[in-house]
């Protein structure tokens, strides 16, 4: 059940970042969140680089979910 909650939230947040529904998140999509979240552009860039495991400049749903699951389960423990 925890796993399902996590996947649901990850998908929801992915769509929050990928407003155009491209299926991936580019760095500029992440920077757009600067207006909505209390994070600096530098922080958002840091978040992007941390989640972009292969460093290709695009965040796939898999990369995003993997990063989110670490956060989610560390919060629940």
């Amino acid at each position: 059940p925890g796993q399902l909650d996590m996947l649901k939230k990850a998908q929801e947040f992915f769509q929050t970042c990928d407003t155009e529904g491209k299926g991936f998140i580019a760095k500029k999509d992440m920077q757009r969140l600067h207006n909505e979240l209390p994070l600096s552009l530098e922080d958002l860039e840091d978040v992007f680089d941390t989640l972009d495991a292969d460093g290709n400049g695009f965040l796939t749903p898999e990369e995003f979910t993997s990063g989110f699951s670490h956060f989610f389960f560390s919060q629940n423990n």
Binding site: T16, E36, L37, P38, L39, D46, V47, F68, H70, F71
Partner: peptide
């Protein structure tokens, strides 16, 4: 170890990011 420090910082920024998203979702109707 600078690498460990960078890792810990990134984790904090990630936690901050996801927490902000969580509160954004619950904060809006």
């Amino acid at each position: 170890d600078p690498n460990m420090k960078a890792g810990a910082t990134s984790e904090g920024v990630l936690a901050n990011f996801f927490n902000s998203l969580l509160s954004k979702k619950t904060g809006s109707p």
